[in-house]
């Protein structure tokens, strides 16, 4: 099939950027979205033009590197799917596809479709860990974890930090990401000592990065490739409210 692509091109962080239209021919329906861009980039390279820069790594839907807003939807309209796992069979011959980077002030564009997501790392650094004595691994089952807590914590831990939640949120909020990390650690026994202070530190870091506030629109969970549920945000708010204002 043949497609018309409208892609955001931006030479660097300081460049204003612009939408550029490309034609790609003979796209196989079995290609992934990124492979389709690879085809375009090979052609651009052969023609001596600058290829389109985009983030990617595992291409198995588990690393969280890839991500672009496809026709106005983060990771495209296929539910619970990363861009690398989105296949071209969901498009039709002759379609026009608009491709843009995540748009958020805390995610500055580095080049084309690549954004700097270090803001997420700083949120994790603020409290997304448990403080334990380092050394040899503890004995298995030395800390019993209830089955339902283990399941819920694991569901939250599937967050790959891709940033689609921020890209999709009309407020540019990072609440779903931050909530997933807070829920993941806060439900396990190992996470209890720092539970409230963790929530407070991570929420404050999220606000300091310049992300917007959550108005519970649910756009984040709808595009999340891992289907992190919205009640994680309620869990984050509950833990945050438990923290004393001075801790």
């Amino acid at each position: 099939m043949n497609l018309t692509l409208k892609i955001w091109r931006q030479d660097g962080p300081e460049d204003r950027g612009r939408m550029v239209t490309y034609q790609v021919e003979d796209v196989s329906p079995d290609m992934s979205f990124l492979e389709m861009l690879d085809v375009l980039n090979e052609r651009l390279t052969l023609a001596g033009e600058e290829p389109v820069a985009f983030d990617h790594d595992c291409r198995e839907g588990i690393c969280g590197m890839c991500g672009m807003v496809i026709n106005g939807v983060a990771h495209g309209e296929q539910r619970a799917t990363t861009t690398c796992q989105l296949h071209m069979r969901h498009f039709k011959d002759g379609d026009t596809v608009t491709i843009e980077p995540w748009r958020a002030a805390p995610f500055p564009v580095i080049k084309d479709l690549v954004v700097d997501r270090s803001a997420f790392d700083r949120i994790i650094q603020a409290g997304g860990f448990i403080s334990v004595p380092a050394g040899s691994a503890p004995d298995a089952h030395s800390i019993p974890v209830p089955k339902n807590a283990a399941d819920a914590a694991f569901d939250a831990a599937t967050c790959i930090g891709c940033g689609a939640c921020v890209a999709a949120c009309p407020n540019g909020s990072a609440s779903l990401f931050t909530a997933a990390k807070i829920t993941h650690l806060g439900l396990l026994p190992q996470g209890q000592p720092e539970r409230a202070s963790r929530a407070k530190a991570m929420v404050e870091q999220m606000d300091a990065e310049g992300f917007g506030g959550c108005t519970n629109t649910g756009e984040c969970t709808a595009v999340c490739p891992k289907g992190i549920p919205l009640d994680a945000i309620a869990q984050m708010n509950a833990d945050y409210l438990k923290a004393s204002p001075t801790s």
Binding site: A104, P106, A168, N171, G212, G218
Partner: peptide, 15 residues
């Protein structure tokens, strides 16, 4: 403030 540059494609609600 969190989204100074808007999307070119109309953002379609997924929720």
């Amino acid at each position: 403030r969190a989204r100074p540059v808007k999307y070119a494609a109309r953002r379609r609600s997924q929720a």
